[in-house]
Amino acid sequence: MSKKKVALACSECGSRNYSIAENVNRAERLEVKKFCKYCGKHTIHRETK
Results as ranks from 00 to 15, higher is better:
residue 11 S to K: 15
residue 36 C to M: 05
residue 41 K to G: 05
residue 9 A to E: 04
residue 6 V to R: 04
residue 33 K to R: 15
residue 2 S to H: 08
residue 15 S to E: 14
residue 8 L to A: 03
residue 13 C to S: 05
residue 49 K to P: 11
residue 8 L to H: 02
residue 3 K to D: 08
residue 21 A to M: 00
residue 19 S to K: 08
residue 46 R to T: 15
residue 20 I to E: 02
residue 23 N to K: 04
residue 45 H to M: 05
residue 29 R to W: 09
residue 2 S to R: 09
residue 45 H to A: 03
residue 16 R to C: 14
residue 20 I to G: 01
residue 21 A to G: 00
residue 5 K to M: 11
residue 24 V to A: 08
residue 49 K to H: 11
residue 28 E to C: 04
residue 33 K to L: 12
residue 28 E to V: 08
residue 8 L to T: 01
residue 7 A to D: 07
residue 46 R to E: 13
residue 3 K to E: 12
residue 16 R to S: 14
residue 46 R to H: 14
residue 42 H to F: 15
residue 28 E to D: 12
residue 33 K to P: 00
residue 35 F to V: 02
residue 45 H to R: 05
residue 23 N to D: 06
residue 35 F to A: 06
residue 28 E to Y: 11
residue 46 R to C: 09
residue 38 Y to H: 14
residue 42 H to N: 10
residue 45 H to K: 05
residue 17 N to D: 12
residue 37 K to Q: 10
residue 27 A to N: 08
residue 6 V to A: 02
residue 32 V to C: 02
residue 29 R to K: 15
residue 36 C to Y: 01
residue 29 R to E: 13
residue 40 G to F: 06
residue 10 C to A: 02
residue 33 K to A: 13
residue 18 Y to W: 03
residue 41 K to Y: 10
residue 29 R to I: 06
residue 24 V to S: 12
residue 46 R to S: 15
residue 29 R to Q: 13
residue 12 E to I: 11
residue 32 V to Q: 15
residue 5 K to T: 11
residue 21 A to L: 08
residue 18 Y to N: 02
residue 7 A to W: 09
residue 41 K to N: 11
residue 17 N to T: 06
residue 39 C to E: 10
residue 24 V to T: 12
residue 4 K to R: 12
residue 11 S to H: 10
residue 14 G to E: 04
residue 3 K to Q: 12
residue 2 S to A: 11
residue 20 I to V: 10
residue 5 K to A: 05
residue 19 S to I: 06
residue 22 E to S: 09
residue 46 R to W: 07
residue 19 S to T: 10
residue 32 V to Y: 06
residue 38 Y to A: 09
residue 27 A to V: 10
residue 9 A to S: 08
residue 41 K to M: 09
residue 30 L to E: 06
residue 42 H to P: 00
residue 17 N to G: 10
residue 48 T to K: 13
residue 20 I to Q: 01
residue 38 Y to P: 00
residue 21 A to Q: 07
residue 41 K to S: 13
residue 3 K to I: 08
residue 37 K to I: 07
residue 12 E to G: 01
residue 13 C to I: 06
residue 16 R to M: 14
residue 49 K to F: 12
residue 26 R to D: 00
residue 13 C to V: 08
residue 13 C to G: 05
residue 11 S to P: 00
residue 5 K to P: 03
residue 15 S to I: 13
residue 22 E to C: 01
residue 13 C to Q: 04
residue 38 Y to N: 15
residue 30 L to V: 03
residue 48 T to N: 05
residue 31 E to T: 14
residue 29 R to V: 07
residue 22 E to H: 14
residue 37 K to D: 10
residue 28 E to Q: 11
residue 42 H to S: 09
residue 30 L to Q: 03
residue 21 A to K: 05
residue 25 N to H: 10
residue 17 N to L: 05
residue 34 K to F: 07
residue 43 T to C: 13
residue 18 Y to P: 01
residue 28 E to A: 13
residue 4 K to P: 14
residue 26 R to K: 08
residue 26 R to G: 00
residue 40 G to P: 01
residue 17 N to H: 07
residue 24 V to C: 02
residue 24 V to Y: 07
residue 40 G to E: 07
residue 7 A to T: 05
residue 36 C to T: 05
residue 18 Y to M: 03
residue 31 E to Q: 14
residue 19 S to E: 15
residue 23 N to T: 00
residue 6 V to G: 01
residue 7 A to N: 07
residue 21 A to Y: 09
residue 5 K to V: 07
residue 18 Y to F: 07
residue 33 K to W: 01
residue 43 T to P: 00
residue 27 A to F: 00
residue 27 A to P: 11
residue 17 N to S: 09
residue 45 H to C: 03
residue 44 I to V: 15
residue 33 K to E: 15
